[in-house]
Every structure is written in C-alpha cells, then in structure tokens.
C-alpha cells in the first residue's frame, strides 16, 4: 500500500501473520485492513497508527466494527484477534484551502 498503508519493513513492528499464530506472548494477532498480521509494538491504537509511518496521522480507525474517536487513540488497548481498519481522510485537489 506504499507510504499510506501497511509497511512492515519500514517499522519493524509488523510481520505477515498468514495462518500461523503469533510466536510468543510479546506479539498480537491482528487483522489490519483485511490482512492477518503479527504486531510487536505497544498495544494501543496510537502506537499501531504510528507504526504505519507519518501518513497514518490522517487516518481514522475502526476496531471490531466501532469507529473510534481520535482523542481516544492513545487510551484504546489492542487485543489479540482485533480487526482494525484504517479509514483515510481524502480531501481533493485544492491547491490550498480556498
């Protein structure tokens, strides 16, 4: 997904989950954007977002069907099996805000 999406090599916090479970307790099995992954970072939404690189700051997050408030990102814990979707703000072509 390039700079706006999952980039495990960039962060070192994600690895492909495929069908194998996490290798140890320090790892979470997550489904992010429909892909199974192993997450090794701090277990809150903000950290997961930050692990995606700078462009993730303009994503909203939905976990297990619930859209989160941006102000809650740091306080929402991630749990094994969570399904996480990043919902990206996409404005348009304005050269500047009119």
């Amino acid at each position: 997904m390039g700079e706006t999406g999952i980039n495990s090599e960039k962060t070192g916090m994600l690895s492909s989950g495929k069908d194998a479970p996490c290798p140890g307790p320090a790892c979470l099995d997550l489904v992010v954007q429909g892909k199974k992954i192993h997450y090794h970072g701090t277990r809150n939404v903000l950290s997961l977002l930050e692990s995606q690189g700078e462009n993730a700051v303009y994503a909203n997050v939905r976990i297990n069907g619930e859209v989160l408030r941006r102000r809650d990102f740091e306080n929402i814990a991630l749990n094994d099996g969570d399904e996480v979707d990043f919902l990206y703000y996409m404005g348009g072509g304005a050269r500047r805000q009119p």
């Binding site: 700051v57 303009y58 939905r62 941006r70 703000y89 348009g92 050269r95």
Partner: peptide
Amino acid sequence: VFEEPPPPGTVPTC
C-alpha cells in the same frame, strides 16, 4: 465514519 475534519495541516491536498 469521519466525525470531524482532520486536524489542520495533517492531510495534504492532491
């Protein structure tokens, strides 16, 4: 889904 506009300056334009 997107309750409020993004924080100023966080989302670039095309």
